[in-house]
């Protein structure tokens, strides 16, 4: 039971980072990306490769993962600068689908469908952090750092600029804001952090394959942000806890066969997303928008 809870808490920390980083795009900048699992995956694969071939030090692997994910996020920044609305959603979907295929097919980099196995236990500066408890502390520390950085940035001028261009791009421009630079920057920062989440994920599972980085995962991440409350600091975390606890809660219900839990879970978060958009579009934590 304890082992189960530690595992759950670790996953909550990892997905908490991922959802918080996605919230930078969706909630603050109004960039509706459905390709976040792609960058989660890039982080995981890079960390796994670094751990397998260079060094099992978490700091090295996570830094490499974050930098590569941040750099490759320019593929997402490009359409974000050129198009918006439906077009950008479509572009990010296209990107996610291409990435899934590449993850499954680029055997030399990703191990193909079989994935990368035997990722060594994480170490930090020579210390072993592989035990579940130690790794949970590491994951929570990463989450805390992410939240602190995001909170500081979003309460500062960067956050204000993003919200300004989300609320009115033309007015933001009229006050000297370089919309292209800001959008590029937020995409890079968001993907940098999800790269770290990917690195934690790779060490935690000791195995990564394409299954974890598909369109479904992107949708789950989006659901976490939106159900919790986009554009708030704690919303994504609430969403992560809600969605990750769901399978556990469902397994206590005797009338659901164990094999169907995944399906029931999918139904619940799908229906929840729809219901929230109808009755409370700002999410569980979000402020009500008020009448215009």
């Amino acid at each position: 039971m304890i082992a189960y809870l530690v595992n759950l808490a670790t996953l909550i920390a990892i997905f908490g980072i991922a959802a918080t980083s996605l919230n930078l795009l969706i909630g603050y900048a109004g960039i509706f990306s459905i390709a976040h699992a792609m960058f989660f995956g890039i982080g995981a694969y890079v960390a796994a490769q670094v751990a397998l071939t260079v060094s099992p030090d978490f700091l090295v692997a996570a830094l490499a993962a974050a930098v590569v994910a941040g750099a490759l996020s320019l593929c997402l920044a490009l359409p974000a600068l050129r198009v918006r609305g439906e077009y950008f959603v479509a572009a990010s979907l296209g990107l996610q689908m291409m990435a899934s295929t590449i993850f499954a097919e680029a055997h030399s980099l990703t191990g193909g469908v079989g994935g990368l196995v035997g990722i060594p236990p994480a170490r930090i500066l020579g210390f072993d952090v592989a035990s579940p408890d130690a790794f949970l502390v590491l994951a929570l520390a990463c989450l805390a750092v992410t939240l602190a950085v995001v909170r500081t940035l979003m309460r500062g001028s960067f956050g204000r600029s993003l919200m300004a261009l989300r609320d009115s791009e033309s007015a933001a421009e009229a006050f000297g804001k370089d919309v292209r630079a800001l959008k590029t920057l937020v995409v890079v920062v968001g993907c940098f952090f999800v790269g770290i989440a990917g690195a934690l994920f790779a060490f935690h599972m000791a195995f990564v394959n394409v299954e974890s980085f598909t369109l479904e995962q992107s949708v789950v991440l989006m659901a976490m942000v939106i159900i919790g409350g986009a554009g708030t600091l704690t919303g994504p975390l609430v969403g992560v806890i809600a969605l990750l606890s769901l399978p556990a809660a469902l397994s206590f219900l005797p009338f659901i066969p164990a094999t169907e839990i995944g399906t029931v879970q999918q139904f619940i978060y799908g229906a929840l997303m729809t219901a929230l958009m109808i009755f409370r579009p700002s999410g569980i934590v979000g402020l009500s928008r008020g009448a215009r």
Partner: peptide, 13 residues
Amino acid sequence: NVLSAIEPTPWLW
């Protein structure tokens, strides 16, 4: 609203 109107630098701070 007013503060953001005088923060044009497109950087983290």
